[in-house]
């Protein structure tokens, strides 16, 4: 009885002083969760099925015993900032931000999804189905769509492709823009707003089933080598018990019926464990791009910062 009153009092105080922050990570106090556990989502998954995500977060909440909420942000940069500031504990990000050097490092690898039997995916360079272009070189002087400036498949890979030929994006293409969503990149190419685009193969295949009318207007002209699938990461400062719990839940999804249902919805085989070295390919590609175009990279970084600061 007394404990209940204390809780109420704390809640009222919290409300009065604005302590409650919906974006902050969940805390465990005396075995009770006062705030939901925040799980950051990015463009690596298709986020337009709200009901599915609500049900999945409910599943995670039930498993973990605390309320789990998905925090959706437009860009990887924003989600990384949320992790950095400690306002979220978990996030599903891209391999490119994962391999970026941070000092001090604030994320750790939690799990890597298994897609088509492997924790790997590709970057697709796509054009409109009626386009005469066969290779990325054909797109010279045309409009190209990227997903996110910190996306591996949606930005780093095409940049690398051109950099290896000594070309920069700015000079190769007449116009480029970021859609901050692989789905929208496909849309931009399908609508012919962009002549070409770089997308995540997983998203492209996923949408090929879910929105065939859209995807069938595009054609893949270049498939990248396999890269480590966008990983789920945890904040280093998060409660280790919670992190372990989350890891176990994700890994166990492929073993329980309900979990399988969500995996099927995501078109994934499961969440598995992979070493960080899985992402060395991306790391090497980033290094090579930087080396090939040191000046371009600096300029690019500056531009990305402007773009990311948009919201």
């Amino acid at each position: 009885m007394l404990r209940k009153w204390v809780t109420y009092f704390a809640l009222i105080l919290g409300t009065l002083f604005g302590v409650t922050d919906s974006a902050s990570a969940g805390h465990v106090e005396n075995g009770e969760v006062t705030k939901p556990i925040q799980f950051g989502l990015t463009a690596v998954v298709v986020q337009d099925n709200l009901r599915f995500l609500d049900q999945w977060s409910q599943y995670l909440s039930d498993k973990i015993g605390h309320r789990v909420e998905f925090a959706r942000r437009k860009s990887y940069r924003e989600v990384m900032d949320l992790l950095d500031s400690g306002r979220i504990d978990f996030a599903w990000i891209c391999g490119y931000p994962f391999i970026k050097k941070r000092d001090p490092e604030f994320i750790q690898l939690l799990s890597v999804p298994v897609y088509a039997g492997r924790p790997l995916y590709h970057s697709f360079i796509i054009v409109h189905k009626d386009s005469p272009d066969r290779v990325i070189e054909d797109l010279e002087g045309k409009v190209f769509a990227f997903s996110d400036p910190e996306s591996n498949s949606g930005y780093l890979f095409p940049q690398f492709l051109l950099a290896s030929q000594g070309k920069t994006l700015e000079r190769h293409f007449r116009q480029t823009f970021f859609t901050y969503s692989h789905a929208e990149t496909i849309e931009a190419v399908a609508e012919q707003v962009a002549n070409g685009g770089a997308v995540d193969s997983y998203i492209w295949e996923y949408l090929k089933e879910k929105r065939p009318a859209l995807v069938k207007n595009t054609r893949v002209i270049k498939k990248s080598p396999a890269f480590g699938f966008p990983p789920v990461v945890a904040r280093i400062g998060a409660d280790p018990k919670l992190v372990q719990k989350m890891r176990n839940i994700l890994l166990g999804m492929s073993r329980d019926l309900e979990g399988k249902k969500f995996l099927a919805g995501l078109k994934l085989d499961g969440f598995g464990e992979s070493p960080p070295e899985l992402f060395d390919g991306i790391r090497d590609m980033a290094a090579m791009t930087r080396k090939a175009l040191p000046w371009a990279n600096a300029a690019e970084r500056k531009k990305n910062e402007v773009a990311a600061g948009k919201e």
């Binding site: 409009v143 116009q175 823009f177 970021f178 859609t179 929208e184 707003v193 402007v306 948009k310």
Partner: peptide
């Protein structure tokens, strides 16, 4: 100002 052509297109759409 942000050169965000995709958002411009989307608003037209």
């Amino acid at each position: 100002l942000r050169n965000d052509h995709w958002s411009l297109f989307k608003s037209l759409k």
